[in-house]
Design a protein around this nucleic acid. Structure first.
Lengths: 149, 149
DNA sequence: TTAAAGATACACTTAAAATGTATCTTAATG
DNA sequence: CATTAAGATACATTTTAAGTGTATCTTTAA
């Protein structure tokens, strides 16, 4: 059981943006900081923009910043919307035809567990992940008002 | 986010065995019933045997049956031991070196959510998934004392 | 001894995730 | 208005892990 890097990095990008609210951050900078491909970051960012979590501005001097205050971005919400599928098992999907289907208790049990998982994440907002901003900025290598070279 | 078919089918195999306690069930029968490859079932069964959830007997007249009473097989336990990795995200793994690492709250949050997920499954045993055995047997196509042709 | 079962090993296929490359669009600025 | 720097989009390629297939070994009952 795992979450895709896609979702994982979506959260990390949001943390980065949240820790650096005074300026726009570029995709290039994020990719270099986290040492992953620019195109992967771009895909993630695009989705975040589409969903309203991030605001992207094109052109010279453009870049990214949070689309809403960190306190209004739920961690559970991000995971729910970024993760491609929550069809924990085959029988969650419409076209599935497991023998048990009708009164299968397994399906219900897994569904309940999934809800518990997400509910736990719903307890937090992005702001909760960015407490102690100075230290976080330090770890992320964010220097005052100076973008990456 | 999903669980591998491996784990999914492990649970289904256990349900099948639990619903058919009066005789040994063969791998072939299970594969045909669930319409998946014999070798996939074999791999799953092997693991279940290694873990003690299932008892396999070779040779003519051999087959599978539960290794313990259904009431003593925890659903959470099965998922925990069958699922290949619970490294929800990269930073769960030892060799990972995320920038945030040290005081990253994300890691803690995801870990707590995972625990909530498993705790929910820990509330159930295999026996809870096999209530209404007659109906289940009917759905699984289990006929009294008559193996699949 | 034979047949029927699980056990083991390994090669192959498939699907999805991640990466790479190229090009388009937008916006600031000299 | 041209240039430059940014995100947006599209598509092809690579990589990885999950699943499948085939062959052979081992065990056990009859």
């Amino acid at each position: 059981m795992n979450i895709t890097q896609h979702t994982d990095y979506a959260l990390r990008v949001l943390i980065y943006l949240g820790a650096c609210p005074e300026r726009r951050v570029t995709v290039k900078e994020v990719a270099e900081r986290f040492d992953i491909s620019r195109s992967h970051v771009m895909k993630i960012v695009n989705q975040l923009v589409t969903l309203g979590f991030v605001e992207g501005l094109r052109g010279k001097g453009g870049g990214l910043r949070l689309g809403r205050p960190a306190g209004e971005i739920g961690v559970g919400e991000v995971v729910r919307r970024m993760e491609p599928g929550f069809d924990l098992v085959d029988c969650f999907r419409a076209e599935s035809s497991c023998l048990l289907n009708a009164n299968c208790r397994l399906k219900g049990a897994l569904h309940a567990a999934l809800q518990a998982f997400l509910a736990k994440l719903d307890e937090l907002t992005l702001a909760d992940l960015i407490v102690n901003q100075p230290r976080l900025r330090d770890q992320l290598g964010i220097v005052e008002l100076t973008p990456v070279a």
